[in-house]
């Protein structure tokens, strides 16, 4: 009998394949020119000049450094805080369902609104954050206006929004763990921190790596809160590569160069992901949950 089910998926998969192939070729072709919307009709083929320009563009290099810093810091902080919280609430108590629902709130909140909220809370003169600091005799801090602090403020907003995501995923894996090994260790006289370090954490390893990957991918692409809270400022101190690419394209209208930035960002992200993925999943799968 002729199986017709493949007609359900083939056309769409082929279309997606074709679109992405054409788009990739088109992007590569564009990066080999010097197309700028400010100089219409004067574009020419310039080979790899855009890529060479990127290598010597201090602003781009700095932006790349900030992207790495932000991604690593956000992922690490969210993972550590999220894990700590999930261990805290991994027990039966009244209202657990409500806590779970509340943790969902930041996750589904519109990121632009999250940015506005934190911009409001971090307002140097009238914000709650500085008010809270002033109560304990500190501050005031110019959260978004001081180049040394601004990236940290963005980190704060990102951590607020996405730590609950780590918590909810870690809670789910904790609940699916068998309790026998932990109890057996306790019977053998292991202390709580030993149980945690030698039994619970190794069992969570896989789930945590997946969460870390998810958060890292999103952090590299982070745009909304950056655009709302600082737009890369002050003095470019919060400009990530993603943001620099956006500004090149839509403020400077330097289409070819911005695509070169996007291309390099995509390649670097994919290479980093592949490395991480292989490190994480090719390694001996001890304690796979």
């Amino acid at each position: 009998m002729h199986d017709t089910t493949r007609y359900f998926y083939r056309p769409v998969v082929l279309l997606f394949g074709a679109i992405s192939a054409v788009l990739t070729l088109y992007v590569v072709w564009l990066t080999l020119h010097n197309i700028s919307l400010l100089r219409p009709g004067r574009e020419s083929f310039i080979g790899l000049d855009n890529y060479l320009r990127l290598l010597t563009d201090g602003r781009a290099i700095n932006a790349l450094g900030r992207t790495v810093l932000f991604t690593v810091a956000a992922t690490a902080a969210e993972l550590v805080i999220g894990l700590a919280i999930s261990l805290l609430v991994d027990r039966d108590f009244r209202g657990k369902r409500i806590v779970r629902a509340i943790l969902l709130v930041p996750i589904v909140m519109t990121p632009v609104v999250v940015g506005l909220t934190w911009r409001f809370l971090l307002n140097p003169t009238n914000g709650m954050m500085n008010y809270a600091l002033s109560i304990v005799g500190l501050g005031p801090v110019d959260w978004l206006g001081d180049p040394n602090v601004a990236l940290f403020s963005l980190l704060l907003a990102d951590i607020w929004q996405w730590t609950p995501f780590v918590v909810l995923l870690a809670m789910a894996s904790l609940e699916s763990l068998p309790e026998d090994p932990q109890n057996a260790a306790r019977v053998d006289g292991a202390r709580e921190w030993q149980v945690l370090w030698h039994i619970t954490l190794p069992a969570l390893k896989r789930a945590l790596l997946v969460v870390a990957l998810i958060r890292a991918i999103d952090a590299v692409k982070a745009f909304d809160i950056f655009y709302i809270m600082t737009r890369g400022g002050p003095a470019l101190s919060t400009e990530t590569l993603n943001l620099y690419g956006y500004i090149s394209a839509f403020t400077n209208f330097d289409i070819s160069y911005s695509l070169t930035i996007a291309m390099v960002l995509t390649i670097l992200t994919n290479v980093a992901l592949l490395l991480l993925y292989n490190l994480a999943f090719r390694a001996p799968k001890q304690g796979q949950a």
Partner: peptide
């Protein structure tokens, strides 16, 4: 996985 930037500009 690609950042939206790369397909949004074209």
């Amino acid at each position: 996985i690609a950042p939206p930037l790369i397909f949004i500009i074209p």
